[in-house]
Simulated assay, not measured.
Amino acid sequence: MTFTLNPRFAATFPPPVMEARRWLDGVIHPDDRPLINVSQAAPVAPPPEALRAAMADALMTQPESHLYGPVLGLPALRARVADEWTRSYGGTVQASQVAITSGCNQAFAAAIATLAGDGDEVIIPTPWYFNHKMWLDMQGIHTVPLATGDSLLPDPDAAEALITPRTRAIVLVTPNNPGGVEYPAGLVHAFYDLAQKHGLALILDETYRDFDSRTSAPHDLFSDPDWADTLIQLYSFSKAYRLTGHRVGAMTASVKRLAEVEKFLDTVTICPSQIGQIGALWGMENLGQWLAGERAEILDRRAAMAEGFPALDGWRLLGCGAYFAYAEHPYDLPSNEVAQRLVGAAGLLMLPGTMFMPEGSAGGKRQMRIAFANIDRAGVQELFRRLSNLSI
């Protein structure tokens, strides 16, 4: 039987997290050295009990929660996001400028679907979030890498040199996945000005905004009355409220663009999960203090990561923030081989830089991403102990 396959899918690399999990096959971890999994940036604990109770109550008492809902999301949740963004960023965001999606990955896919087609170009700083690259590859859109160097901060002048008549958008992720770095507000605004100048969209993925270390707004883009002509902001409720399995994200953009996004969403999922949206709304309304505690814990783990690296012989920390540390390893082997050896030699599962960089990149061969959101300070210290005793 002939297996017919879209050649764009054949050319797209397999999901990296799933590939890394296969490295665990057949490996036995002794009781005194259990596996430390720092490969995936997602909470593994369930939502707080009160949130689960609210979702369970909706399941039992709200018949409409089992039906199709509005394609662009529940009006109450859209309004709540708009109010929160207006309060925290300044400027004005209307509920009609917010769409709820089935996770932030879908928000990115929907945004790109409205912006670019076969042969168009999108500029993304490297190291990049691999799911962004995968979606662009599957759509026949050329990913233009923007090197960031050791700072992991993209340069607007370098980005401008990459713009061609086929460029449709620039993508930024802050706090960054995989690099962890928080982009300064001035840098974000410089990219906004660049996108405005060239008539491009600026896609700003703020999945990890709730764990930004700054007390001030991470940018002021919404204060521009014309922000919707340029900015497409993405967000995820998964990390803030531990709703990963319920797939709830958001896109903030112009009303005109969301009318096009509605076409995409209606043909893919029809509507986001009703129960997930109910949970996200309840979380926004009731879990502010709890989320502040979650942020404080993540910032403490970030501090533990930063404190541990100077004592780790040969390793160099390049970026650290939100859920991630991004580092350079000291070994002669490429990072994809180092990552696989770490599983058996140290009981550590982390992702190599080769998964976040263009194929053949010299930098990717020296780099590793450590997602520390699911290990506390003691777990971070154990991770460093194993790395310091490692022989590869």
Rank of each mutant, 00 (worst) to 15 (best):
T2P: 15
F3W: 10
F3C: 06
T4N: 03
P7I: 03
M18K: 14
W23N: 00
V27R: 11
P30G: 07
D32Y: 12
P34L: 09
N37V: 13
A41W: 03
P43T: 02
P46M: 03
P47F: 03
A54T: 09
L59D: 01
M60V: 01
Q62T: 12
Q62Y: 02
E64N: 06
S65I: 15
Y68M: 09
G73D: 03
A79D: 09
D83P: 00
W85D: 02
G91E: 07
T92Q: 13
V93N: 01
A99P: 12
T114N: 13
G117W: 08
D118M: 10
G119Q: 09
D137A: 14
M138A: 13
T148E: 09
D150Y: 04
P154V: 14
A158D: 07
A159S: 03
E160G: 10
V181E: 05
G186Y: 04
F191M: 05
L194T: 09
G199Q: 04
L200W: 03
T207Q: 08
T207C: 10
D210V: 13
D212P: 00
S213M: 02
D226L: 15
D229W: 05
T230W: 13
Q233C: 15
L234S: 04
K239E: 15
Y241C: 01
Y241D: 02
L243D: 08
M251Y: 02
T252R: 08
L258C: 15
V261K: 06
K263F: 07
F264C: 09
S273C: 13
I275K: 05
G276V: 11
A280C: 07
N286S: 11
A292P: 00
R302M: 12
A304Q: 03
G314T: 05
R316A: 08
L317A: 05
C320W: 00
Y323N: 08
L333W: 03
A339N: 08
Q340C: 11
V343W: 06
L349E: 01
L351K: 05
M357E: 12
G360D: 02
G363A: 12
G364S: 08
K365W: 04
R366P: 10
M368S: 02
M368H: 02
R369C: 14
I370R: 02
A371D: 06
A371C: 12
I375C: 07
G379L: 08
N389K: 13
L390C: 03
S391F: 00
